[in-house]
Write a protein that binds this DNA or RNA. Structure first.
Lengths: 195, 195
DNA sequence: CCTACCATGTAAGACGTTACATGATTGG
DNA sequence: CCAATCATGTAACGTCTTACATGGTAGG
């Protein structure tokens, strides 16, 4: 259900086409909530059917069209209701924990590669999120610029602070995962696993 | 796909019925990977069809039966292949980050409640995982006892160490989430949100 | 006899992934 | 004219959740 609200968050900044949403998704909210193209278009249609957004058919060249979507008052209301409602948490489902808990079944080499891979994965994520955090702090991302342009200057700091908070959650997460996997590697050393 | 390997991990310890798996799931792997009853029975049937496990029909009383499943050599091989293969990581999908990043849209009271709820949620998880970590360290959980009984004593420490490692991942995660949300509350204070 | 527990599912729908599929326009 | 980019989807499949549905047995 969060895809809907991720899309509404972007559309509330200004009207966009499915294609634009798809691109900006990857470059902004996509860091927080990934969604493939094939999910965005159908979801937009569903949201339109539910009256949350309205698409305006626009001509492009001679034959092509594009649908420019904008948020309706009902959509705005729905978004705010979601923001004001408590979040429902999904039960944990952590493949890495599951694997770690039974790691004695893996070959020593595979065990070490698992932990190294874990570090590599989260380091990659961390790099991206830290870079995005930098860009947000510098108010340098296109979406953020567009968004700040629509609100009074005295609110800018607040908006940036919350955006930072969102990314910091992921940065913290990645750092924790890396530190844990490094402790795991130390454990393998202690257990005499070949390095 | 991890459900399959969570079930195999349990069945490798000893043969069990769907019902036993369901109960022990909640009390052991369920902490690492939640699955509802309605998913376990069909998955067991699929695994049997794939030749990974075999079910033995047992009589219970006069009319009732139960299926006791045990792992086949093919199932064992499949499990070890999974343990030795690199883990594929899913893209991030963090509703809490998403919400935090747009928290200026929430009412001040709702913003604070969101962060307090986040702390409450992860504190609840943390309590459970820490308790389980204690039980694992004391080698006091039924599944672990059953498991240790099947392997040579010199391997016990190793098995316990990995089990601890798995739970520590979740403990670390919960602590990080709590610390983050507390920083978020401090931010709200700084922004002059009513408390 | 009755209650708690043992035991096993189905059905509908939401959500997500991967792969496939097509065509127009703009700028060089 | 060709490549990059704009633009919009469908199809098939798998996963997960929620709710519904049924009956037997063991122990007091």
């Amino acid at each position: 259900m969060s895809l809907r609200y991720a899309l509404l968050a972007l559309l509330r900044v200004g009207p966009k086409s499915g294609y634009e949403l798809q691109k900006q998704f990857d470059a902004s909210v996509g860091h927080l909530w990934h969604a493939p193209d094939s999910q965005i278009y159908p979801e937009l249609r569903k949201m339109e059917a539910a009256g949350l957004i309205e698409g305006e058919e626009q001509v492009r060249g001679t034959r092509a069209t594009r649908r420019l979507y904008h948020v309706t008052p009902a959509g705005d209301e729905d978004y705010l209701a979601w923001m004001n409602a408590p979040l429902t948490y999904a039960r944990v489902r952590e493949p890495a924990s599951l694997k770690a808990a039974y790691l004695e079944a893996a070959e020593p080499k595979a065990a070490r590669e698992f932990l190294r891979g874990h570090i590599a994965h989260w380091q990659g994520e961390l790099d991206q999120w830290e870079a995005e955090l930098e860009r947000v702090s510098a108010r340098a991302t296109p979406m953020l610029k567009e968004r700040l342009a629509t609100i009074p200057p005295e609110d800018h700091d607040r908006v940036v602070a919350f955006k930072r908070l969102g990314y910091e959650n992921l940065v913290d997460r990645a750092r924790t995962e890396i530190a844990w996997a490094e402790r795991g590697l130390t454990l393998l050393d202690e257990l005499g696993y070949p390095g």
